[in-house]
Design a binder for these strands. Structure first.
Lengths: 129, 129
DNA sequence: CTTGACTCCGTAGTAAAGTACGGGGTTTAT
DNA sequence: ATAAACCCCGTACTTTACTACGGAGTCAAG
């Protein structure tokens, strides 16, 4: 089986070596087999696991949640679904809030554009509820 | 004018006293007038400013960004408009990101629901390349 | 066989956003 | 007028997710 050193793995994954060691310490990945040299050698399995971690992170999961996700590997699908649904709910809430803000900012800008007096900005008051 | 002590303000805003002092140190709010006793006394203006900070935070703005938002207050109207437009752009971007995330999560959940095999979760597999 | 690149390990530092602590003054209620 | 409750200040600690450092061992090229 083909294996890579930690440096090659890091380059391939575009992360720092230390990040890999960090994940190891945090229990997100196992410490790989180390032959007599003492150097870590990574299988594609571990590489893919790190890729998984990175993707989950992009989806807004914290490392803690990812540990949880990974531990669900052997758990029934419904539990994984639960986690994803929780995440979804919080994301949807954030979107709504941001859209409210977007609307508010747009309103402000319009008011600004209709303002003849440059020294008295309507946004100033609008920002202070 | 009615004022409150830091403790009352904190209770009202449901944050810690130390958080208020922390915002002061970070320049998000001014240190309020302190009479001979040395105690801070907060006007409703400052209370509202903190409320604004909290709201902006819930919307995903960092304190650094909020400092920026708040700095809109002292600028002439055209500059305020500029900054508001920059903010708007970043908010819109954030909304888009979150909607992408929302979509990805929904897809996963649907796949999960259509999965007859509870022991073999498509979410976990989807994230494993 | 030596030089440079790579790896090991443990420890320390970073940024963000607080939170806690402790020794001292002040206010308020009894 | 005294104890409880509140506030002052500076400093230190917390969490998350890394990132950096430094001395020592190892491997690969010339």
């Amino acid at each position: 089986m083909k294996t890579t050193t930690i440096g090659q793995a890091a380059k391939q994954l575009e992360i720092h070596i230390e990040t890999i060691r960090f994940y190891e310490r945090k229990g997100l990945i196992e410490q790989p087999q180390k032959p007599e040299s003492g150097y870590r050698h990574y299988s594609t399995d571990i590489i893919n696991r790190i890729r998984f971690i990175k993707r989950a992170q992009e989806l807004g999961f914290t490392l803690k949640e990812i540990v949880n996700l990974l531990s669900l590997n052997d758990q029934p699908c419904t539990q994984v679904q639960d986690l994803a649904e929780q995440k979804l709910a919080s994301v949807q809430e954030k979107v709504k809030d941001l859209q409210r803000l977007e609307f508010a900012l747009k309103e402000m800008i319009v008011q600004c554009m209709n303002n003849p007096d440059d020294d008295h900005c309507p946004i100033i008051e609008a920002l202070q509820p």
